[in-house]
Write a protein that binds this DNA or RNA. Structure first.
Ligand SMILES: [Mn+2]
Ligand SMILES: [Mn+2]
Ligand SMILES: [Mn+2]
Ligand SMILES: [Mn+2]
Lengths: 218, 218
DNA sequence: ATTATTTTTTAGTATAGTCTAAAATGGTAT
DNA sequence: ATACCATTTTAGACTATACTAAAAAATAAT
């Protein structure tokens, strides 16, 4: 059984390791968790003991298969709660993070099952991220940053990479949303900024920084 | 800001003090919280420092007005979550306690507000207990144990005093439920057991122990 | 190849919550 | 009035999590 803190660390490691593939540095976990590196080292050693990560002194950590599954179970809960908050309680997609970050730790299998059922077994959360199944499997659809689309190319917004309130509020303001059909009208070579057409009617201009954080599929 | 543990203690003290009226003994809190008396004393001192209870060494504790309100805020959240679990997620009334006991600690005013709205501002939880308003006010309807009804008297089941799974499952089995109209058909002087008629059709026989834990109004 | 810098780990401290064992207190019974 | 007993509190220890400051290791710069 993992504690709240352990679950949070595991989630952070999962995200930083790109789904368990890459190794993760102490400093990066420290940054993500907003704790000091010394605290991270402590926790890494404990998680190592528990067998959910492989910890090699001075060389960062890797998730074990067990660790990956546990991380995904928490992520599953987080995303299901996010769907609930947006679909049922009318939260906006920029308000759900904090709350879901607490709700995800509520321990009850039956609760997640019933909630999932109640929501109609959603496949994606409000930010377009896939909801893992109860066995820790994620089937992610191919997606890439909008910044990589060529001029003239079309696609559909399927997710956001950054889900900070600031970024999401900006997207709301300019009218970009998950599911929108888009086409790249122009691209400035100098700074990578782009102009896109949304749903065949509205044209939006955005910096490369923004375009990199919008994920599309074709 | 209170911790999870502090909220749980405060709730226990509230219940044991009959809504803040009576003083509460260390041993009773210890029993209710399933912690040792020494741990309770520690916590009482801390809660005393924080001004939510009045702690007099060796003489038990009283809730302050602040403490009472804080306890009621947690109780409000617990009961709203219980309604959600039963009404929306099809939990049975004997399954909600554990889960609501965790959910009640999620910190977000907006969450409780929206949930309350989503549920249509319920006034009572699945066990018939009143849901305090956001300012810590409870308006409880007059109610008393079924065991006190005279033979021939009628009433309506409005709440249960014991909400353990064992007791609630038993009530399900015999067909007693919140809202049922009842009439006392017979009462055995010797042991206080009673026979009641439910909704004018089904007759149930129950021990005094059971009858004392069913609350009715007339 | 040394030296300097960055990253990571260790050592020691703090708070929250719990425990056991022992001491203190208040109330009860003689 | 004193002795006894149940209750409560203190003292000391433990786990979890975080911190600061200092040491150690890895990496980068000369
Ligand atoms: Mn979290
Ligand atoms: Mn999300
Ligand atoms: Mn609780
Ligand atoms: Mn209840």
């Amino acid at each position: 059984m993992l504690t709240f803190a352990e679950e949070n660390y595991l989630k952070a490691i999962y995200h930083l390791s790109d789904g368990g593939k890459k190794g993760v540095a102490t400093n990066d976990v420290s940054h993500a968790m907003r704790t000091k590196p010394a605290s991270v080292t402590d926790m890494m050693q404990k998680l190592g003991e528990k067998g959910v990560i492989e910890y090699r002194k001075y060389y960062g950590v890797h998730l074990t298969e067990d660790g990956r599954k546990l991380a995904l179970q928490t992520i599953r809960k987080q995303r299901i709660w996010e769907v609930f908050l947006v679909e049922k309680l009318k939260f906006s997609w920029d308000e759900v993070h904090e709350v879901a970050d607490e709700l995800e730790h509520v321990r009850s299998q039956i609760l997640v099952q019933r909630l999932d059922e109640y929501l109609g077994y959603p496949k994606f959360d409000p930010h377009g991220d896939p909801i893992p199944d109860e066995f820790g499997e994620v089937k992610s659809r191919p997606r890439f940053p909008l910044s990589e689309l060529e001029v003239g190319a079309s696609g559909q917004i399927v997710a956001v990479k950054d889900s900070s309130a600031a970024f999401l509020k900006y997207l709301d303001k300019v009218g970009a949303y998950i599911g929108a059909r888009i086409k790249v009208l122009d691209k400035v070579e100098f700074d990578g900024s782009v102009e896109i057409l949304v749903d065949g009617k509205k044209s939006i201009f955005m910096s490369k920084d923004v375009a990199m954080n919008i994920l599309v599929m074709q």
